[in-house]
Simulated assay, not measured.
Amino acid sequence: MTYSGTKRGGGSSKRERLAAAAAQVLHEQGMEKTTIADIARAADVPVGNVYYYFKTKDQLVEAAIGAHAQALADMISALDALPAPQDRLKALLAGWVGQRDLTARYGCPTGSLASELDKRDDGLDQTLAKVIRVLLDWAEQQFLALGRTTDARELAVALIASYQGISLLTNTFRDPELMASEGRRLERWIDSLA
């Protein structure tokens, strides 16, 4: 999954820019290294203004999760415009493969954040799990539409797990071609299921 990136200019509020910047900076630097000043700089917002919208770094993390949720909703909306479930699943793969250079450098934005949040005891991991569940449920619906009524959930889990695994390997080895190769394999797999 990818975040929408930082929006600059009059088309988005400072709050939205800060949320998108938080998602971006947390992805690039991780939670421990990221400061509120880093996020303010990425959003092109004076650091003093951040506290008007978000009192703590945890509130910014929660806003970043909201940015991930919005980016996912936008992506699903675009995918749902495609005519067939097989096309939608392949377009999802193409989006992941299209982000392979970013993944090679920083890992999966949502998966990396989920891994970091799992080490904390504040419930934000469960907030992010709800976002990931939306993608999992959507993928299950695509497999159901392909006629896979008995194993649609298992196939959805396999697809998302494959993406998360290849994201980790792509990042570990800093090799975008790993993601491209796995994307091609997953396309053949989807074709075999239809």
Rank of each mutant, 00 (worst) to 15 (best):
M1W: 08
T2A: 15
Y3S: 12
R8K: 12
G9C: 11
G10F: 13
G11N: 14
S13N: 04
K14P: 08
E16P: 03
R17L: 10
L18V: 00
L18M: 04
A20N: 15
A23W: 03
A23F: 02
Q24H: 08
V25T: 09
H27T: 14
Q29K: 15
M31F: 07
K33R: 14
K33E: 12
K33W: 02
T34K: 05
T34P: 13
T34Q: 05
I36Q: 10
I36V: 15
D38W: 06
A40L: 08
A40F: 07
A42Q: 09
D44H: 12
V45N: 06
V45Q: 05
G48W: 08
G48C: 07
N49T: 11
V50K: 06
Y51L: 11
Y51H: 14
Y51A: 08
Y53M: 07
Y53N: 07
F54S: 01
K55P: 02
T56R: 02
K57E: 01
D58G: 10
Q59I: 00
Q59Y: 00
Q59G: 00
V61Q: 03
I65K: 05
G66D: 14
A67D: 04
A69N: 12
Q70Y: 08
L72N: 04
L72A: 13
A73W: 01
A73D: 11
D74E: 14
M75K: 13
M75A: 14
A78E: 15
A78T: 13
A78W: 07
A78N: 10
A81L: 11
A81H: 10
A84F: 12
A84D: 11
D87K: 07
D87T: 02
R88K: 09
L89S: 02
K90Y: 07
K90S: 06
L93Q: 11
L93G: 12
V97S: 13
A104N: 06
C108Y: 05
S112E: 09
L113W: 08
S115L: 03
S115P: 00
E116K: 03
K119R: 14
G123V: 11
L124V: 01
Q126V: 08
T127A: 13
L128R: 01
A129T: 09
A129I: 02
K130I: 02
V131C: 04
I132M: 03
I132V: 05
V134N: 04
L136M: 03
L136H: 02
L136V: 01
E140L: 00
Q141K: 11
F143D: 05
A145L: 07
L146G: 00
G147R: 02
T150L: 01
T150M: 03
D151K: 00
E154A: 09
L155Q: 06
A156V: 00
L159T: 01
I160G: 05
A161L: 10
A161F: 06
S162A: 13
S162D: 10
S162F: 03
Y163R: 06
Q164V: 03
I166Q: 09
L169E: 10
T170M: 06
T170V: 04
N171S: 13
F173T: 14
F173G: 04
F173I: 06
P176S: 13
E177G: 08
M179R: 13
A180G: 15
A180S: 15
A180V: 10
A180K: 15
A180N: 14
S181T: 14
G183K: 12
G183C: 09
R184Y: 10
R188I: 05
I190E: 00
S192L: 08
L193S: 01
